[in-house]
């Protein structure tokens, strides 16, 4: 039984590797499809495919979504042509639901203590109210991490992504200390998930990881190749995270699609620590007209997770005491 399952798993992988997967259409080889066959033959090409029962069938190519494989090795160092990816984070919507973190960890095969996108609790000064601050990699245009890499294991692409090739990384950790935003994390120990041999490694998927190398948010370019949004974006229940392409001047959170420049202009979008000159590609919309008080974000946390934010919460309490 176990053997059988393994076999079918590997055959599915092979199937994906051929580069084609069935999109919305499932072929059963009977019923109405055959009644349509006459017309379809005239206007479109046919592609031979295996259906779910293992039978070879022919399907019109127009009905099939092509699956774009992530780029590997040298090709991955070049960006997706014509794209300039950008992320916009609406701070007024974030309530620390941690769904972005969960889905990112699932998508990148990470353990629960490896957070490629983190949510900080920020309090800018004594008067201002705390707010939740999701922090992915900023994919800077002038990336300090790429500057210091001695082997070119981390690199900047034309589509704005800053990626890591863990096959080249020597684990010197210089990039981690060079990043002023503390985005990068080190793979301190060997994990079971790193040993998945069936998956072809690509810097675009960042899976599987390797012990003794560096990992971080990759903007999920492998998903963008197929027109899908990164994991964090599509999982946010509040729609606080937007993703898009500057060349298209469009950002979307999955539900709502906006013009990028207009949004930044009208809602006073800014980049965190702009004065460092790193030219990030992640913009923040200030936390005006918040949807709910920040305390809501603490509600569903475990005690351990709550302990993270002690530095801000204890300050709040002491401020309150002195205020009274």
């Amino acid at each position: 039984m176990a053997k059988k399952r393994k076999k079918s798993k590997s055959s599915r992988r092979k199937f994906i590797r051929t580069g084609i997967t069935l999109g919305a259409l499932t072929v059963t080889g009977s019923g109405i499809v055959s009644s349509l066959a006459k017309e379809e033959e005239q206007d479109s090409e046919k592609i031979k495919l295996l259906n779910q029962d293992g039978k070879l069938v022919e399907v019109a190519s127009s009905k099939i979504k092509l699956y774009h494989k992530p780029a590997v090795s040298k090709k991955a160092r070049k960006g997706i042509s014509g794209r300039k990816f950008v992320m916009v984070i609406d701070l007024s919507k974030c309530g620390n639901a941690r769904k972005c973190i969960d889905s990112c960890q699932k998508g990148h095969n990470l353990a629960t203590d490896q957070e490629w996108i983190r949510v900080h609790l920020m309090k800018d000064n004594q008067q201002s109210d705390p707010y939740w601050f999701p922090k992915p990699c900023y994919h800077c245009d002038n990336p300090p991490c790429v500057k210091v890499c001695p082997v070119g294991a981390t690199f900047k692409r034309s589509d704005n992504c800053v990626l890591i090739d863990v096959n080249r990384c020597i684990g010197c950790k210089f990039c981690i200390s060079a990043c002023p935003y503390s985005v990068r994390i080190f793979n301190w120990k060997d994990r079971y998930s790193y040993r998945e041999k069936d998956t072809d490694y690509s810097p675009e998927t960042s899976v599987p990881g390797q012990v003794g190398t560096v990992g971080k948010c990759d903007f999920c370019p492998d998903k963008s190749r197929n027109g899908e949004l990164p994991y964090c974006i599509s999982s946010c229940p509040m729609g606080a995270l937007y993703f898009g392409d500057i060349n298209e001047d469009t950002i979307t959170n999955g539900d709502e699609t906006l013009r990028f420049k207009k949004t930044i202009e009208e809602r006073a979008g800014y980049r965190y620590l702009e004065e460092l000159g790193t030219e990030p590609n992640v913009y923040y919309l200030p936390p005006v007209d918040r949807m709910y008080p920040f305390e809501r974000g603490l509600k569903d946390l475990t005690e351990e997770q709550k302990a993270r934010y002690n530095n801000v919460i204890s300050k709040l309490q002491s401020d309150n005491e002195t205020g009274q």
Binding site: K147, V151, C169, V211
Partner: peptide, 17 residues
Amino acid sequence: GRVDRLHHLLIYARIQS
């Protein structure tokens, strides 16, 4: 982290680092 890849310092050397 990866002492086994020290030769990368030579073959992929980046003078900017």
